[in-house]
């Protein structure tokens, strides 16, 4: 398992190229091209604004105003996470031709989808910066140092789950269908459109065992809330947990590896 993991370094070039291909191919043929990376979260914002002002008017508490900014802090990383997972679940099957005909480590494919979505996440950040400037929010540079750490934790966690899902979907195709619903549930169990404080007290434990909660809160603390990053202990714990998730995911993937060429 670890030798395979080490051998993966040789495929850096391939991963790089495939990520680039993915980004190029995704919006090829669409008029707005990669602007969709900005537009998609904007449209989501419009949807939720409509829901919370017209359909069921809600008074947002003071601590999550301006709401647009708060929303973006959560939705951008969430999009990275959820798209990575739903793509990974499919990636070995759609890339079946490659696995059967070309010699290369299959884990490259889910890792590429996580990385490609990470690039989209980065491409979406300017919109967040634009809102920060618009609302004249001060950013603490020392707090910003935490940002790469949060991204790293999320990357490790997402990749672990992506590997696990990719490997299992080869044998259980219905994961693809279940996953969409699970991700919706997961989305609403993560403080993205609401804040942790808005959640009923006796349900907070549910949110607390959700790793994405701590990632979302970390992003919000660093980019949105003024004041020191108070959530770093949770983040560090999550880093440890993510490494375990990654190892478990990679372990399952490695065990099932030989069956891919026959099953896809």
């Amino acid at each position: 398992m670890f030798t395979n993991l080490a051998a993966l370094r040789r495929y850096r070039g391939l991963i790089q190229t495939l990520v680039a291909r993915d980004l190029k191919a995704r919006y090829r043929g669409s008029v707005l091209g990669f602007f969709w990376s900005f537009i998609n979260p904007l449209m989501l914002l419009v949807v939720y604004t409509f829901v919370f002002t017209v359909v069921m008017p809600t008074q947002h508490p003071v601590d999550i105003r301006p709401y647009a900014l708060f929303f973006f802090c959560g939705i951008l990383p969430w999009t990275w996470f959820s798209s990575s997972l739903s793509e990974s679940a499919n990636v070995l099957i759609s890339g079946g031709n490659l696995i059967k005909k070309v010699l290369f480590p299959a884990e490259v494919l889910p890792i590429v989808s996580v990385l490609a979505n990470m690039m989209h996440f980065f491409l979406g950040l300017p919109i967040l910066v634009a809102f920060l400037i618009y609302y004249q929010r001060p950013l603490d540079p020392t707090e910003l140092l935490w940002f790469p750490v949060i991204v790293l934790v999320q990357f490790i966690f997402t990749t672990g789950l992506a590997l696990l899902l990719a490997a299992l979907t080869v044998h259980f195709r219905d994961i693809k269908d279940i996953l969409g619903n699970l991700l919706t549930l997961w989305f609403f169990s993560t403080p993205i459109i609401y804040s942790m404080q808005m959640a009923p007290e006796h349900y907070r434990w549910v949110l607390n065992i959700n790793p994405m909660t701590h990632l979302a809160i970390s992003y919000q603390e660093v980019l949105f809330h003024i004041g020191p990053h108070g959530h770093w202990k949770w983040l560090m714990a999550l880093l440890g947990g993510s490494v375990l998730v990654f190892l478990a995911g990679y372990f399952v993937f490695d065990r099932l590896r030989d069956s891919f060429a026959e099953e896809v």
Binding site: R21, K24, A25, R28, G29, N97, L98, K100, K101, V102, L103
Partner: peptide, 16 residues
């Protein structure tokens, strides 16, 4: 170094 010609153009992406 080994190269296998099992199916040609196996990794081609049609859009690019």
């Amino acid at each position: 170094r080994i190269s296998a010609l099992i199916e040609l153009g196996a990794g081609f992406h049609p859009e690019i």
